[in-house]
Simulated scan of single mutants.
Amino acid sequence: MQAVNVTQLSFKYKDQTSLISNLALSIEAGERFGIFGPNGAGKTTLMSLITGLLPYKQGSIKIFDKEVEANKKEINKIIGLVPQDFSFYEDLSPEENMEFFGAWYGLRKETTKQRARELLDIMGLGQVADKPVKTFSGG
């Protein structure tokens, strides 16, 4: 099953030539995937489009067969974006940060706490789940 399916996606900021042009991308459920490129290549823009933070007019982005533009609230429950800069409260641990943002999105405390632990383990951060984020490297 496809977790992410992007077809014929094009995007440009106002007064700019096309940043993303006719992009096709498919990521299977359970697959690990990375996006690499130089500054200004469109990595953050693409992630903002996929998570619904930026609207798109050309093409299609589906998360588990649901079109992002038409299902933003539902999509926000299953996918999100954590940018490197200004994304965490530095004095909180990763677990506390995830619990804070989960509550902000209206998730139940028990659900958020359990899911935060699962995600930290998946990302190999379970051992530092209670350490302040300010002690981590930016990368």
Rank of each mutant, 00 (worst) to 15 (best):
K109D: 14
F136H: 01
S60G: 09
F36E: 13
M98T: 04
M123R: 11
T135W: 09
I122D: 04
Q16A: 13
V128R: 00
D91K: 06
E67I: 13
Q84C: 05
F100D: 00
A41G: 14
E28H: 09
M47S: 08
K12D: 12
T17Y: 12
G138W: 04
L23P: 06
D65V: 07
S21M: 09
I27E: 09
A24Q: 10
T51D: 03
P83A: 11
F136M: 13
Q58R: 07
M98D: 00
S48P: 01
T112I: 08
I78A: 09
G52K: 00
Q114V: 03
R117E: 13
S21P: 05
L81T: 05
N71I: 00
V68L: 05
K73S: 11
D15R: 01
T135G: 02
D121E: 15
V4D: 04
V6D: 01
R117S: 10
Q84M: 03
R32N: 13
Q16G: 06
K113S: 15
E90F: 03
K77L: 13
A129H: 01
R115W: 04
D65R: 11
K12T: 09
G37K: 13
R108E: 15
F86T: 12
I27Y: 07
L19F: 12
N97C: 07
N71G: 07
L81W: 00
G42F: 03
A3G: 08
N97F: 05
L92A: 01
P55L: 07
L125E: 03
Q127W: 00
K72I: 11
N76T: 09
Y89V: 14
K57A: 12
N76K: 12
R117I: 11
K134W: 03
D130S: 09
M123G: 03
M47V: 11
N76C: 12
V82A: 12
G37W: 15
G52W: 01
S48K: 15
M47R: 09
L23F: 06
F64P: 09
G102Q: 03
K57E: 15
T51C: 10
Q58W: 04
E69C: 10
K43I: 04
R32S: 13
V68I: 10
I78Q: 13
E95S: 04
G59I: 06
G40Y: 12
P132S: 10
E69F: 03
G102P: 09
L9H: 07
E31W: 10
E95K: 01
V82N: 06
T135I: 04
P83W: 01
V4Y: 08
F11H: 15
Q114W: 00
M47H: 08
L49G: 00
S137T: 11
K113D: 13
K66W: 04
E110H: 00
A129L: 00
F136G: 02
N5K: 10
G40P: 05
D121Q: 15
G52Y: 02
K134N: 08
K14A: 15
A24C: 10
V133L: 07
L107Y: 02
M123Y: 15
